[in-house]
Amino acid sequence: MPHCTVTVAEELLDGTVEERLAERLTDTVVSVYGDWARPLVVIAFHAIPTARFAVGGKLGTAPAPAVRLESRAGIFELVPDAAPRLAAGLTDALAESLGERFRPDVAVTLVGVADDRSAVGGTLFADQP
């Protein structure tokens, strides 16, 4: 199950950006993984007030938006070009939804979780039939 966590300054979200961003992030994952993934994509927005960010020791300085995608590691073997396509597509989704000024600094982290370290319903993927 692909999980996207978006960390962004709270002030960038206005109640309409979230829907557009959720659609774009989901479409990106589906474009790489295939249509089967659409109902499994989970997106969480972590909106943090700028006053609660610090960059370089300076409080009140928000970094560019970031997205972390966690997925089963095997997908990166099944789709050999998944990592560069996801990195580019997730960056595009954030920049198009939140503003092109962020594009150069958008951070994307892709995490592949091994089947013996990921479970659904209490059962490790490695132990599922």
Rank of each mutant, 00 (worst) to 15 (best):
K58L: 14
D116C: 09
D81V: 04
G112V: 10
F76P: 03
G34T: 00
P80W: 00
G122K: 03
T16D: 14
G74F: 01
V41G: 01
A95N: 04
Y33H: 10
S31L: 09
L90W: 09
D35L: 11
R52E: 11
V106I: 12
T91V: 13
V41I: 10
S118Y: 09
C4G: 10
T7C: 15
E100K: 05
L124C: 06
R72E: 05
A119N: 03
A126Q: 06
D35C: 02
R52H: 13
A9H: 12
V113H: 03
D115M: 00
Y33R: 11
H3P: 11
M1L: 15
P129T: 02
F125C: 03
P63E: 05
F53R: 08
T109W: 09
A47N: 10
V108T: 02
T26C: 15
L86N: 01
W36I: 04
A82D: 06
T50L: 05
A51D: 14
A83G: 05
F45Q: 12
T7L: 14
F53G: 10
F45A: 07
A114N: 01
L78E: 10
E18W: 15
R20S: 13
F102D: 09
A44P: 06
A37D: 01
L110E: 08
G121L: 11
G56L: 09
L25H: 08
V8Y: 12
A9S: 15
G112K: 05
D35A: 08
V111E: 05
G57V: 08
R24Y: 03
E10I: 03
T5H: 12
A83V: 07
V41Q: 01
E23I: 12
A83D: 07
T26V: 11
D105F: 14
A9E: 13
E19P: 14
P49L: 02
A88C: 13
V55K: 06
L69T: 00
L21S: 05
I48C: 00
E11G: 10
V41E: 00
L98S: 04
G99I: 04
V106G: 09
M1N: 10
L12D: 15
V67E: 07
V6C: 13
R20V: 15
E11H: 13
T123L: 12
A37Y: 06
W36K: 04
G60N: 09
A83M: 06
I43G: 00
Q128L: 14
T123D: 06
G56N: 05
W36R: 00
V30M: 02
G89R: 05
D35N: 06
A87E: 06
T5A: 14
